[in-house]
Write a protein that binds this DNA or RNA. Structure first.
Length: 519
RNA sequence: GGCCCCUUCGUCUAGUGGUUAGGACACUGGCCUUUCACGCCGGCAACACGGGUUCGAAUCCCGUAGGGGUCACCA
């Protein structure tokens, strides 16, 4: 039997990082077994969903490199893969359930809710009286004559236990009586999630249902539907959800703004937001946020780093292996080693993975990834026809100071046009240029030296400046800090002589001149 | 509240009766150094609690506590 797994998002307009992890586990299991990973769209609630709300989800998976074997855009033998287009299947299932007595037409209307509230008030477990249950046409006609309308409910067992095996949690046993008579078809004729879900999993021949634990309590009623319909049950695996940073609450889109109170989360957000602002993107936490995959794409993260981090959020191979290539994850993943408890999302660790992956990249790849940022920020033409060696040099000199591709914008001072005003760091300006008595004088002399030095490469510059320091009777530290402020405006940056070489004689001289003029 | 689930360093985790409780991220001391970063060496830091069972328990059993999920004509 080939393994078939699925991920079934609702078109909500965004791809949640927790959802990606669930999808990843499904994807991995299917890939590993040479099976299929199916994307199915749960859009039964029509008024809430729109076609364009699906695109960001598809784009997100494409960007992450998680291909689906069947589903939107790729089709497949079980088309359509949209629940909104499969209504007749669900209706047929409802008819079958009605005919076999596993479901009934219910005319209770608001009385159902009233009974439930009464039970709650009395602190009693709630059992619907089934007073408005209609199993014959005659009963139905009577209720309709009273002006009542109907829904279809499951006729759940009221004794015995539902038993099933969960790949993560082992043997599960739940009292049937704790399940109420769920609605499977609404008053308007539309079927609900549980019914559609079971029918689709069966029609698509899904063998493994891997989903978040919040669905664990839904499982008995789905098993009831499946068994009543004569379906073979899939294997279940309920994985823990991804929790908020620093807590065990489920990570949710709704509380997105709140996560900014967490300092690590905020730091990640800010590093992304700085990049986004420079390339003219909206940065409202509501749409641009580390909970959403879009955020990482825009900041220049690597899909491999994200997937590797997510893989380890609730799963491990052993006591020490942390890095997994795609092939390794596919080969090594197993449901048995999924952890039971919820795992908090840790922005710092994700960033650490990203930094590691990014700096393992050859310079050429980094270069390709950085170019779009410089173009969008207006520092390079699109296409970048001329001086790309500059970017090459900057990337090399930056080394692992670049964590995500968008970080290249932190070094914008190298790409500024001739004569453009530098953004001076005020504190450093005071400390390095204003306070030291001889700062201006030394900087002036150094400027002349740099203007005349025959060779303008890092090594020659270093020799020249060091010997000049000796004749002046100063330490290298007495000039370098001032020089750094004068040429980059910043207190920290690349190795100084690399910086001078990259900038070139003209820019260096010019920048020192304008610094001197301001002093 | 009912039902269900979970509980090892701050965080992600290893561990299935005998370990100095291991690794990673973060934090931190030092070295390197013209800054920042890297790198290298070092450090801090955990078995929720209480009872059993056992020669011996993070590991098995029972309670307690805490955290979480779910109880829709949402998915």
């Amino acid at each position: 039997m080939t393994i078939r797994t699925r991920f079934a998002p609702s078109p909500t307009g965004y791809l949640h990082i927790g959802g990606v992890r669930t999808a990843l586990f499904n994807w991995l299991l299917a890939k590993q077994a040479g099976g299929q990973f199916i994307l199915r769209i749960d859009d039964t609630d029509e008024k809430r969903n729109q076609a364009e709300a699906l695109q960001p989800i598809l784009d997100g998976f494409r960007w992450l490199g998680m291909d689906w074997d069947e589903g939107p855009e790729v089709g497949g033998p079980h088309e359509p893969y949209f629940q909104s287009q499969r209504k007749d299947k669900y209706n047929a299932a409802v008819e079958q359930l009605l005919a076999s007595g596993h479901a009934y037409k219910d005319y209770s209307g608001s009385d159902f809710q009233a009974e439930r509230e009464a039970a709650e008030k009395a602190k009693q477990p709630f059992f619907y009286s089934r007073k408005w249950l209609a199993e014959t046409d005659q009963q139905a006609a009577e209720f309709e004559a009273e002006g009542r309308s109907s829904v279809v409910r499951l006729k759940m067992p009221r004794s015995g236990t539902c038993e099933f095996i969960d790949a993560v949690r082992g043997e599960m046993s739940i009292e049937w009586a704790t399940e109420s008579d769920h609605v499977i078809q609404r008053g308007n004729g539309a079927c609900t999630y549980h019914l559609a879900n079971v029918v689709d999993d069966h029609d698509f021949q899904i063998t493994h249902v891997i989903r978040a634990v919040e669905h664990l309590s839904n499982t008995p009623r789905q098993i009831f539907i499946a068994q009543s319909l004569g379906y073979q049950l899939p294997n279940y695996a309920h994985i823990p959800f991804v929790a908020e940073p620093g807590s065990k609450k489920k990570l949710s889109k709704r509380d997105i703004a709140k996560y900014l109170n967490n300092k690590d989360f905020k730091r990640l957000y800010q590093s992304g937001a700085e990049i986004a602002e420079q390339i003219g993107l909206q940065t409202e936490p509501d749409t641009f946020n580390p909970v959403l995959v879009e955020f990482y794409r825009e900041a220049g993260f690597l899909p491999d780093a994200i997937l590797n981090y997510l893989l380890l959020l609730g799963w491990s191979l052993d006591d020490s292996t942390e890095e997994f290539s795609r092939d390794e994850m596919i080969e090594k993943f197993s449901l048995e080693r999924i952890v039971k408890g919820a795992a908090s999302f840790d922005p710092q660790k994700l960033t650490a993975f990203q930094g590691r992956y990014f700096n393992e990249l050859p310079a050429k790849r980094k270069y390709k990834l950085c170019i779009p940022y410089l173009q969008k920020a207006g520092f390079l033409p699109d296409p970048p026809e001329c001086d790309v060696t500059l970017l090459d040099k900057v990337i090399t000199a930056a080394g692992d100071r670049l964590v995500m591709a968008g970080d290249i914008l932190k070094f914008e001072d190298f790409f500024l046009a001739d004569g453009a005003e530098l953004n001076y760091n005020e504190k450093a300006w005071q400390k390095r240029l204003v306070k030291p008595e001889r700062a201006g004088e030394l900087l002036g002399k150094c400027r002349d030296l740099l203007a005349d030095t025959p060779d303008y490469d890092a090594a020659s510059l270093e020799t020249a400046i060091k010997s000049w320091c000796e004749t002046e009777g100063i330490g290298i530290g007495d000039i370098i800090h001032a020089l750094r402020i004068a040429t980059t405006g910043k207190a920290a940056g690349f190795a100084m002589f690399d910086t001078l070489e990259i900038l070139g004689r003209e820019k260096v001289t010019q920048r020192i001149d304008s610094t001197l003029a301001k002093l």
